[in-house]
Design a protein around this nucleic acid. Structure first.
Lengths: 155, 155
DNA sequence: TTTGTTGCAAAACGTTTGCAGCCTC
DNA sequence: GAGGCTGCAAACGTTTTGCAACAAA
């Protein structure tokens, strides 16, 4: 059961932000927003740019520009995972989750944990105003985990 | 009351690792290790390199090389905080902690939380072997937090 | 009409690599 | 003595910037 978040609703949020900041509502920006809206996975700037080719051609510079704006208005978050190029992820239509990153193959997996969420959400500081948090668990995924004896394939 | 970890003890760990991996025990590597041992703060590769100048001159390439080795043997961890160049941090002589990163000025602060630690340490997955985790809390530090009316200094 | 935005290419940035000489083993 | 390691400089991948043409307001 997914949250019913429509592209129109997100578009409105984005439009309102662009308006507030006196930024222009260009077709490129909306094309990028829609692409992100339609995808579920983490993405990096270049892949997004290439993947858009069929629908709408934008330059990488514009992708970075738009990503920056979307970060500012919290429509996406940035994940600079160790060993990978920076990944981005939409924040709407997804429940709070955390990440498992395989240090060997770079695969990123999500998981949710109500107790962790509750605990972190309740964390406050007198001298620091939290906007968001990132919890990354690094390790080895099943495929990369050294198998306990099984024809011992070298590396 | 700090843990009594001596440079000699750490040096032994490093030496053992170099030996195991058939890597050479060069003065540069030990100079870098000592520099890291003596410092308490997070550091980045270039700053470390520059800060070493007075004691021992090493090239940035060697610093990166050595950092890589130290990451492999878990003497340090890497923190690619959003908006900052990658920071590294020694893992010895420090208690488990988490990070507060100011999105505006880039200041990084540490904090400890027993409950969070316990909860995260107990987290396991059948299909993922956790080696370490990073918890980053992004937000605004006291200095960067918008003050509630007080002569309203612009920016 | 004004001024922000685009695409492009060049530059910047942090990091890695190739190589000749050096030094550990 | 062999081969890993060093410093240097060049190369790399990612991200940013400068600029002329363009288009949103």
């Amino acid at each position: 059961m997914k949250d019913e978040i429509t592209y129109e609703a997100i578009k409105e949020v984005f439009t309102a932000y662009l308006h507030k900041k006196k930024l222009r509502k260009t077709p490129e920006r909306y094309a990028i927003l829609e692409k992100i809206y339609l995808s579920e996975a983490h993405f990096d700037a270049e892949t997004l740019c290439i993947d858009m080719l069929t629908e709408y051609r934008v330059s990488l510079a514009t992708v970075y520009n738009t990503i920056e704006i979307m970060l500012d208005c919290s429509l996406i978050v940035k994940h600079p995972f160790v060993g990978l190029t920076s990944k981005y992820e939409k924040t709407f239509g997804k429940t709070t989750h955390h990440h498992l990153i395989c240090s060997k193959c770079g695969n990123v997996r999500e998981f949710t944990d109500k107790k962790i969420q509750t605990m972190l959400k309740s964390k406050t500081f007198a001298t620091f105003e939290i906007t968001h948090y990132s919890l990354y668990l690094y390790g080895l995924c099943n495929k990369c985990k050294p198998q306990r004896k099984k024809k011992s394939l070298k590396n």
